[in-house]
Design a binder for these strands. Sequence first.
DNA 1: CATGGTCAAGTGGCA
DNA 2: TGCCACTTGACCATG
Length: 314
Amino acid sequence: MQLENKKHCSCIIGYACINETLARTKPKSQAICVNRGMIKKTFEQRGLPYAGQLALQNLYDLEKIVRWNYAHGIRLYRMSSDMFPWASEYKIEQLPNASKIIDQLNKVGQLVKEYQQRLTFHPGQFNVLVSLSDRVVQNTIKELEFHAAVMDYMQLPQTAYAKINIHLGGAYGDKVASMKRFCKNFMLLSESVRSRLTVENDDKRSMYTVQDLYTGIYQEIQIPIVFDYLHYLCNPGPLSEREAFLLAYNTWPKDIEPIFHVSESKKILEPHAPLHAHADYITKCVDTYSKKVALMLEAKAKELAVQKYQELCC
DNA sequence: CATGGTCAAGTGGCA
DNA sequence: TGCCACTTGACCATG
């Protein structure tokens, strides 16, 4: 069974945000980091000039991570949503050092293209396109547009190849009505966001299964579904893993390899940890049911987990 | 320079 | 009712 898996395992394996090896560069002042930020008080005191400074430093380090990934054969990487501190409060063009930032985005984008890498985003839990509050929906739109603008400056494709993946974020006791709101609010987004947006199945029982997303989202607006193996385990719905996997797989355009999420529960090693807590490494190869998919590992050991998974499964 | 308290945002689950 | 966990710990005041 393990061997069977090995044969079909895709070797496009990626990780999210932090590169542990580079983050541990000594001395600490030279640690490579893409999520320099600040607390509210500091933002109020120092404003856009400091936000721009931090963002530019984050982008210089993004370039280092992209180069490191190339040198180590890693072709999938999720960018941090914290590269731009307080991004909801401004547009890139309003930063005093915008031209430097745009040049750097362009440079990293060219590099990514040359290296044939795939970069994605996964905006945070505050993005709730289904919210009942108009303020929350408006903030979500702003945030998603910011992510898309960053990708546009990098000249990444306006397709799910450069996906911006989100959860629906709320059910309010009525998933069907909530999904209708998602589809309605989806139309308020620019083409730059719409063309990249994907949705992911949830781990909570009251939230969205692959089946829910297929009928409520995909059949309405045809955006791809990201299948998360651990979330499926926590909240499978009526389908077997194979059925859920294939249903999600079929929502992707034929010329774009789906990206699916893999993590292992910490519960395996620490019985008291909650089921959805992520472990450091992935120790079992997932079944990709004879399909080619790219796997985004959500493991605390980051790029080290990628290398370990590749040895084990590819 | 090391440490620990604290940190924007939304939602659901749990004590 | 108030904390915790999410896609990732990091900032910063204090000693």
